[in-house]
């Protein structure tokens, strides 16, 4: 079943385009990572899906409804970011009680056990928590709500490495027990890549890639060798980036090499490996490694 579908969706903020012509479908119970550079439009996209903001053009459907003004979407989705609005007068356990009243699948016991594990006192207030603890509390809310559509916008901001790992593991375990559609955005693709099935790359206000993470990774190849070797064997191939590493060059190219061609590369002494997911993503969003060097070489 399709949970989110977009046809030519655009969003403007007083005539300035934030997102342009998005067409995409996100299926039920898939964990999708949303990545893009700062200002690419990730947050705008997630807020539109949550029904907080209205699409300027095109057709956006969540659970077959326009999410803006939809009670159905609100009751079946939760949006977690690092600027959650809670009434300042309430203590954390009171906030949890409210979630319990509003969300049908909310698991209070799980929320309380996670609070204990992360040593967040129930009697504290959200604004008195440290930045990392605040994010952790929000993340706990997102997991315990068990909403059919769970949206995390940069959930790990301020968390330390241990808390991040714990968060992704807790999310995954609860997802395995209670599958749901999850959207996760982060600047750091590496920290979340393991739990993702699909990736949605937003670049320059448009969708640059949507599909499985392994397909993206396998769409590129990293070649290492001398400059002459590499230029000789990449005729007709699309080169995404070139980096000098000491005496060797590393080129990332689009992978349309056959097995025979790759064996030939090996024979010529050119190391060829699949790129890391992060490198594939950087290549897509025109952030070639070493690009910053050009600034200084001008």
């Amino acid at each position: 079943m399709t949970v989110i579908s977009m046809k030519h969706v655009s969003k403007n903020y007083s005539r300035i385009a934030a997102l342009t012509d998005l067409t995409v479908k996100i299926e039920e119970n898939v964990i999708t990572g949303i990545v893009g550079r700062n200002g690419a439009g990730k947050t705008t996209l997630l807020k539109m899906i949550a029904g907080f903001q209205k699409a300027t053009k095109g057709e956006l459907r969540v659970f077959d409804e326009n999410p803006f003004r939809s009670l159905l979407v609100s009751a079946n989705s939760i949006y977690i970011d690092d600027a959650m609005s809670y009434p300042g007068s309430m203590k954390l356990h009171e906030l949890l009680d409210e979630f319990n009243r509003f969300y049908a699948n909310w698991n209070e016991e799980l929320a309380v056990r996670l609070m204990e594990y992360f040593s967040i006192p129930l009697n504290s207030r959200h604004r008195f928590l440290s930045k990392g603890k605040r994010s952790t509390f929000n993340a706990i809310v997102g997991i315990a709500a068990r909403c059919p559509l769970t949206i995390f916008d940069e959930p790990t901001t301020g968390m330390d490495t241990a808390a991040r790992n714990d968060f992704y593991r807790a999310l995954l375990k609860d997802y395995i027990a209670f599958p749901r559609t999850i959207l996760l955005s982060s600047h750091y693709i590496d920290e979340m890549k393991d739990v993702l099935e699909d990736l949605l790359v937003i670049h320059r206000k448009r969708i640059r890639y949507h599909g499985s993470i392994s397909d993206l990774q396998e769409a590129h190849l990293s070649l290492r060798g001398s400059s002459e070797q590499l230029s000789g064997s990449t005729l007709g191939k699309i080169i995404v980036s070139k980096t000098t590493r000491g005496l060797q060059e590393e080129w990332i190219v689009e992978n349309d090499f056959s097995d025979a061609e790759r064996a030939e590369l090996n024979r010529q002494g050119i190391t060829n490996t699949t790129v890391s997911l992060n490198d594939a993503y950087l290549a897509l969003t025109e952030q070639p490694r070493g690009g910053i060097d050009d600034v200084f070489n001008a």
């Binding site: 939809s70 009670l71 609100s74 609005s85 809670y86 009243r101 509003f102 969300y103």
Partner: peptide
């Protein structure tokens, strides 16, 4: 925003 942290619609 606090209302929409929980379940809500404009109406």
């Amino acid at each position: 925003n606090a209302s929409f942290t929980y379940v809500s619609s404009p109406v």
